[in-house]
Amino acid sequence: MLDLLGADLADLENLTNELNLPRFRAKQLFHWVHRQGVTAIGEMSNIPGKLQEILSEKAFITRPKLITTSKSKKGDTIKFLLKFSDGVMVETVLMTYERTASRDRNTVCVSTQAGCAMGCVFCATGMDRMERNLTAGEIMAQVWTAQRYCREYKLDQVTNVVYMGMGEPLANLPVVLKSIHLLNHPEGLGIGMRRMTISTCGLVPQIYQLADAALPVTLAVSLHAPDNEGRSSLMPINKKYPLEEVLKAADYYAEKTGRRVTYEYALFRGVNDSEEDGAKLCRLMHNRLANVNIIPSNEVPESGFQSPEPEVLAKFVQKLAACGVNAVVREEKGGDINAACGQLRRRIRGK
């Protein structure tokens, strides 16, 4: 059975060829699924009923069950907990940004795996077992969940996609790349690749593969410590791919694509927020085509980590600015609805 939501035009042409249908049917199917966002073959009004029956024997459209929808008090962050047909649950977050100096944005943060095998000690998702990779259709279903919400509440369409939800995107790279092309397709949602960001904890071989794909997406590397000792204590993957190798691969990505690499640095109180840590980070970022995203850490009770003191956060950012590093503090959203990856799923499972 072919999941139409994860199918590109070539997949659909193979399906129509198999069924001895005219080629234009493939484009019709693509339009209904990727532009209109139908959730069932029976909703395709210009496909004859008999043909709908034939297609239903060969294809389906992924439609996860919406378990919960949580909305922040500010109304700018909406979190969806979705369950797929085999029972696995993932989280998706829609964040709305109203701007005065630039256009408004509706950003959806998608998961790429159910669970995660990377074991980062501060991450709620990492505390759960790795269940499986998601399919391209399941990633697309998350975007369409957010898109339908935007339509229902008279918001503009989804404008940005960040692969920063549950799981390690580069551990599911072929599927992630397929979803990027589907989202970018002009006959679909037409989301610009420059408005997509892929996060990684530092899978070095896959960073090179992504660079060689030559797509103008943003690469975001989870750094979280300025040296190998500190990073290995937070992120076990650093023992396999140490900081020097990660930075070399990220530099290759920047050179190959001409795109600045974003380095994510979550500040944890008393762990990686000292003046010495700031000085080390300055040295790491010196002369790199990079942005540093400082993240006041979400407090995950099970991890024991705490958010930094406000004055420590301010001094840390000032230190980076003083040494010429392009650093910003990520805008906090959704703290009142467990918007950090994996928190809501763990809470629901615990009931």
Rank of each mutant, 00 (worst) to 15 (best):
S72Y: 04
S72R: 12
S72T: 10
K73E: 15
K74E: 15
D76Q: 10
D76Y: 06
D76K: 11
D76R: 12
T77H: 08
T77P: 06
I78V: 15
K79R: 13
K79Q: 07
K79P: 03
F80M: 10
L81A: 14
L81N: 11
L81H: 06
L82H: 07
K83F: 02
K83L: 09
F84S: 07
F84M: 13
S85T: 13
D86N: 14
D86S: 09
G87L: 09
G87P: 10
G87A: 13
V88C: 14
V88I: 15
V88Q: 12
M89G: 01
M89T: 14
M89H: 06
V90H: 05
E91M: 04
E91A: 09
T92H: 03
V93Y: 01
V93T: 08
M95L: 11
T96A: 11
Y97I: 10
Y97G: 00
E98H: 13
R99V: 00
T100M: 06
T100L: 11
A101H: 12
S102H: 04
S102G: 01
S102F: 10
R103Y: 04
D104M: 00
D104T: 10
D104F: 01
R105S: 14
N106E: 05
N106K: 08
N106H: 13
N106A: 14
T107W: 01
T107F: 03
T107A: 12
V108A: 05
V108E: 05
V108Y: 01
C109M: 06
V110M: 07
S111C: 08
S111P: 01
S111F: 08
T112F: 02
Q113P: 09
Q113C: 07
A114R: 04
A114C: 13
A114V: 04
G115I: 09
G115Y: 10
G119S: 15
G119F: 03
G119A: 15
G119R: 15
C120H: 12
C120D: 10
V121H: 09
F122C: 00
A124R: 02
A124W: 03
T125R: 01
T125S: 13
G126S: 14
M127I: 04
D128R: 13
R129P: 00
R129G: 12
R129Q: 14
E131D: 11
E131R: 12
E131H: 11
R132M: 11
R132I: 09
N133Q: 05
T135P: 02
A136Y: 01
G137T: 03
E138A: 04
E138Y: 01
M140P: 01
M140K: 01
A141I: 07
A141L: 08
Q142L: 09
V143I: 15
V143T: 10
V143E: 10
V143D: 10
W144N: 08
W144E: 06
T145N: 08
A146E: 07
A146D: 05
Q147K: 12
Q147I: 03
Q147M: 12
Q147V: 02
R148F: 05
Y149S: 03
Y149A: 08
C150D: 07
C150V: 08
E152L: 11
E152Q: 14
Y153S: 04
Y153K: 11
K154I: 00
L155H: 12
L155T: 00
L155A: 02
D156F: 01
D156H: 09
D156W: 00
